[in-house]
Design a binder for these strands. Structure first.
Lengths: 354, 354
DNA sequence: GCCGTTTGGTAAATCGATTTATCGATGCCG
DNA sequence: CGGCATCGATAAATCGATTTACCAAACGGC
């Protein structure tokens, strides 16, 4: 019989030929240097003084062993994970997934990865909040709440001292934000309807009935005032097709029904258009509809939808850029994107009133 | 002058009242126990024997200090990050973002987070590949390549020994996969056109011209053969509206142009529909179009698009479930989702031939 | 030939949690 | 009262990389 084995653990084979993953100590051992040299060389530490032949030898061994640093160990040591959190209100909404696509692209270009979270889930699920926000997994968070998640989440994240950028949301002055020029977009859409000759122009907005300060409401109101027109009815139209469909009839229900509507979100505009048709109105014959945000299918709807295009991908990109600056110690800023300015795309859903 | 300070580091205040984040040693010290107790208690180690008053005290201190474990340290020690990678071909494509939404929901429900990557970028960018696939950041990867990314990436990931699930892609028998019943869907759409009386039915497929084995091609062909009809023309229609628009004219260009087309992807169907109209054909008068995959706006197009709905979110959910099983040591499987079976939604883009 | 500097590295602490082996103090049994 | 369990913990190794402080050897200047 064998004598009692004092140590049941595997005897730790010194080098594994491709079996497990090579560690920095494996590289160091194989190259005959200390791990410090390997780390400092591979990270480009410019205070490292090293002979050329040693350098080549270490690099060759690292390549040979297909050494890739363990990012988790790096993250622990450096207190920096190289991961950014992105909390989105509704990933399946094409408007928001467009933002996500831009953010993903910019993050990848900067060597960061994106950890995806659902904004509502983050607000609701405490275990998830702890893990994502307070678990040191991410270096910063992009929060795109839509208008679907209560304000409290912002304070909770802020109090966890996690660098935070609000995406198209300027709820709090002390938190960095990147936003589109929604007001200009809404103004442009409204102005278009005014130019067509409409005088009774309603608005389907995103937020709650009392949210009078929404930027898109402001743009609409400013255009009306500028033309000396009265404010038409305004109502919540939400973010989705169904919400838009439900809201439109109520908007037209009043004593002086509008002949044109500005809709804050292209998805609810789709619903509104369908609802109009179902209640016997023709678009644009009886009702003109103009929406904020272009999505690829808007041009293929029946009728094609007149929209104002805003640079959604750019919003994603700039949001990532903003949080990276924040991580570099830059001060909190509020950024508005007006480089590709809002662009009116006149299609078939708007026409002069009869 | 002050004497030379031997140590420039902060003297490491033993407990920080809410300043930095509390560590497990802070909790242990404050509760008068060792870190081991805190860890084992909080993780529910059932071999831990602890007095009730000690338990209460530790829990109280942990709550008081708002202790949240550092997930990075946990991940390093346990060699498990609690993060799943999700590589998607095109996040802004609503079909794929629907899968993503389902995956995100299931991951969150299982206590996992999702790390997002672009499939093409992963294949192209070596630094990103190393970091994401070989950096121990993720416990497994869901790969949804669409047909836009070469096969090589699968082998590369597999050889990194990262648990992998292919999403709607059965390219390799030795890699786990979860797929929709695309063939049945395509068959259903084709059958619908046959039932309407069409006898010349073309097909716009996803992949390359030579990809004759695609499941949707098979469904289309099987339906035609079953009805004793000849195979109409088939051509690549891609994943996007533009690709579909470019392909349609060429499909109709032959000697016996089809009176109906099955399109493998709803987005290219939108493009095809627009292209048809632009070349003077009426849909469905002159050309019927049926597509695979439902997206919310299909019903609002002009004309509303006839589609076969497949459970895309469920695909995302089941893919996550599949990789979690793999992590639990379950064997590689190929799963087909046919629980909510493919459903034909007849709308306005299909009609009997003239 | 002595001392200071540069070269080319290394040793060791550290990040924060997990986990296994161990251990002192009681309790219990006969 | 002696010996053995059981209770209620703890010490210390470990995960893999980074980084600071330090150091031996070679070199250079006078």
């Amino acid at each position: 019989m064998l004598p009692a084995v004092p140590d049941k653990r595997q005897p730790a084979r010194p080098s594994r030929p491709g079996n497990g993953r090579a560690k920095i100590t494996d590289v160091a051992a194989a190259a005959g240097v200390s791990p410090a040299v390997v780390s400092r060389l591979l990270r480009g530490d410019d205070t490292l003084r090293i002979r050329d032949d040693t350098r080549e030898r270490v690099l060759a061994v690292a390549a040979d062993l297909r050494y890739t640093p363990n990012e988790v160990a790096r993250a622990l040591r450096r207190s920096e994970s190289g991961i950014l959190g992105m909390a989105v209100h509704d990933t399946s909404n094409p408007v928001y997934s467009e933002i996500l696509t831009g953010a993903q692209a910019e993050a990848a270009a900067s060597g960061y990865a994106l950890l995806l979270a659902d904004a509502a889930e983050l607000a609701r699920n405490d275990a998830m909040f702890e893990q994502v926000v307070r678990g040191n997994r991410i270096d910063g968070l992009l929060l795109q709440r839509g208008s679907g998640t209560a304000d409290g989440i912002i304070a909770r994240i802020a109090s966890a001292r996690l660098p935070l950028v609000l995406v198209n949301d300027r709820t709090r002055g002390d938190i960095a934000s990147v936003a589109l020029d929604d007001e200009a977009a809404s103004h442009l859409a409204t102005r278009h309807l005014i130019d067509l000759g409409h005088t009774a122009i309603g608005h389907l907005k995103l937020g709650t009935p009392k949210a009078r300060s929404e930027s898109r409401v402001r743009g609409w109101r400013r255009a009306l005032h500028g033309a000396g027109l009265p404010e038409g009815p305004q109502l919540r139209g939400g973010h989705t097709s169904d919400e838009g469909a439900a809201a439109l009839p109520r908007l037209l229900d009043g004593p002086a029904p509008p002949t044109a509507v500005v809709v804050s979100n292209v998805l609810s505009a789709v619903g509104a258009m369908t609802a109009a048709r179902e209640s016997g109105l023709r678009v644009p014959g009886d009702l003109s509809i103009a929406a904020v945000h272009d999505v690829f299918f808007a041009a293929h709807l029946s009728p094609p939808l007149t929209v104002v295009r805003l640079p959604l991908r750019e919003l994603g990109r700039r949001s990532v850029a903003a949080i990276l600056r924040l991580l570099d110690g830059a001060p909190v800023r509020h950024e508005r994107i007006d480089d590709p300015p809002p662009e009116l795309l006149v299609r078939g859903s708007t026409a002069p009133p009869r």
